[in-house]
Amino acid sequence: MTILDVRNLSVDYETEQGTLRALRDVSFTIEDNKIVGVVGESGCGKSTLISSIINLLANNAVLSSGEIIFQGKDIVRLSEDEMRDILGVGVSIIFQDPMQTHNPVLTVGRQMMDIQYRDKTSKEKKKEAAIDMLRVVGIPDPESRLSQYPHEFSGGMRQRIAIAMALMVKPSLLIADEPTTALDATLEVQIIEKLRELQGKINCSILFISHHLGVIAELCDEVIVMYAGEIVEHGDVRDVFHNARHPYTQALFACDPGRIKEKSKNLPTIKGSIPNLIDLPSGCIFKHRCTQRISVCDTSPAMHRVSEKQQAKCHLLTQGKN
């Protein structure tokens, strides 16, 4: 069953310099119990995508077209009150920066009990639920730590608390926005393992945003590669990682320090930078940095299905050269 269906989503930001076209014609689905990773450089639209799904876009953002169907309802058309029946119920989210994700003047227990406000159970039951959840994510001595404030926890602990809160509501869709970026490598592995373990228990789907390719490969079933506000490749993790079809995906993998086998003085990079999204170039969005550019790249490529489980947006695929 499809949990989330994003169809032709386009989001613009009104800026002083003009309209910034942050997301253009983004479509994908997330199935039951699947972990879908989204990978891409900074500024590729990952955060805008998340904000659209939870309907908390910035004030200057305009959702210019598209639908976001979550469990049969189009989130785009819901009012703030109707949205409240989805947020913290069917969808929950783990944000990027664990140091700022909790309210600094309320105890962890208070915040964990507040998010259960819909449950008609007693205060004691809610407290027990919070304690259980903290124990599950591996916070030692959860009973006494419930009365502590966020600043009394370390970064890794705070991220575990964020995970505990997001999973406590037993969502159908968990959004994880670079949940391990602010943490060191050892903690990263622990958090990823915890996430996978709990996903199995709760049976939810996860939309996992990261720019850490190793983590995506480790955790996800599918991967979406984004570039400058578009999806350029989407497919089964194994297919995409072993046989990337889009030149951007190939370049991205070539730059992954985890995949570099030879010693060299300079790390590889993709030459050039992301195009200006206010004044979009015509044709393929990646053509200025692409090493395999051909003449037809001045027209926009369409998403091309290369196999049952993999699709990419590149002219080379239809030209039969890649």
Partner: peptide, 26 residues
Amino acid sequence: SENHIRTARAFGLPRRWVIYRYALRL
């Protein structure tokens, strides 16, 4: 505009709680 308020809203907390308990207190 701080991140923790976004968290509170992302959990669908009632508007009045977000304003008076989560924001005004700070």
